[in-house]
């Protein structure tokens, strides 16, 4: 039985009389504990797809089914880590995580337990040292860590990541990728991650969903990444399976569905 199912989803944006079809007939099944990446050229509709799963954007046709129930409004069971962190700047790091904990576990956990759970999640992303800082006082990578802690603390059924490392420099990005990999290993969450970075997709994912260019983007191809876990960045980088997967994705993106500026 499928855990998360995106079922024949179409999305059309309407602005006045002008209609643009962004997504066309997207069907995707994600199993529990799976790490799935969505890759595609900029503007093809990746964020739109993630927002539909999150419930932030309604699908025009079709729907999303999570554990046999249709989901069409946002909720903490599908926590999102946004590209630009979206921390509330007037709250401290601790309070940014705590606000979610209070909302989700307000009825089921005591105050002490919620405090402990907040601290536990900050610990998972190694951010306890900055618990009393405000988002304006920490670096971009740290903000993204707190965003991840906030999402994890809601104990989501599916973790949705929208280019979570897109705005970071290469070193911070690699560091954070390793952290996310370790967390996935430890917690075994179901993850749907959007990216436009081929290496990131291959390194982190169990499956890579490649999207064709818009308008009316579709799923072009799905690639299983069979590399054993835990994966070590340096060891994996030279393994034939890694290079082959990488090659497949590159071919898809740059030969068969090359990004044409005028068509976008």
């Amino acid at each position: 039985m499928a855990y998360l199912q995106i079922d024949h989803v179409d999305k059309t944006f309407r602005r006045g009389a002008v209609e643009t079809s962004v997504l066309k007939d997207i069907t995707l099944i994600i199993e529990k504990g799976e790490y799935v990446s969505i890759i595609g050229h900029s503007g093809c509709g990746k964020s739109t797809l993630l927002n539909i799963v999150a419930g932030l954007t309604p699908a025009t046709v079709g729907g999303v089914i999570l554990q046999n129930r249709e989901v069409n409004s946002p909720g903490p069971d599908r926590a999102v880590v946004f590209q630009n962190h979206s921390l509330l700047p007037w709250l401290t790091v601790y309070d940014n995580v705590r606000i979610g904990v209070d909302k989700v576990f307000g009825r089921t956990k005591t105050r002490t337990e919620r405090n402990a759970w907040t601290m536990h999640n900050l610990e998972l992303v190694q951010m306890t040292h900055a618990r009393d800082k405000r988002p304006g006082e920490i670096s971009g990578g740290m903000k993204q860590r707190v965003g991840i802690a906030r999402a994890l603390a809601m104990e989501p059924k599916v973790l949705l990541l929208d280019e979570p490392f897109g705005a970071l420099d290469a070193l911070t990005r690699a560091h954070l990728q390793d952290s996310v990999m370790a967390l996935h290993q430890k917690l075994n969450n179901t993850v749907m991650m959007i990216t436009h970075d081929v290496d990131e997709a291959v390194l982190l994912s169990d499956r890579i969903v490649m999207m064709t260019n818009g308008p009316s983007a579709q799923i072009g191809e799905i690639l299983d990444v069979t590399l054993p876990r835990p994966r070590k960045r340096l060891e994996v980088a030279t393994s034939p399976a890694y290079l082959k997967a990488r090659q497949r994705v590159l071919e898809f993106l740059y030969e068969r569905h090359a990004y044409i500026e005028s068509a976008a």
Partner: peptide, 25 residues
């Protein structure tokens, strides 16, 4: 819009949205 998305994911009710997001923002 980011803050609105955050509050939607957290399912803040209108009163919580008012004093936790709107007023500080």
């Amino acid at each position: 819009q980011d803050y609105r998305n955050v509050s939607a994911v957290l399912r803040l009710n209108p009163i919580e949205f008012f004093y936790k997001i709107m007023v500080p923002s």
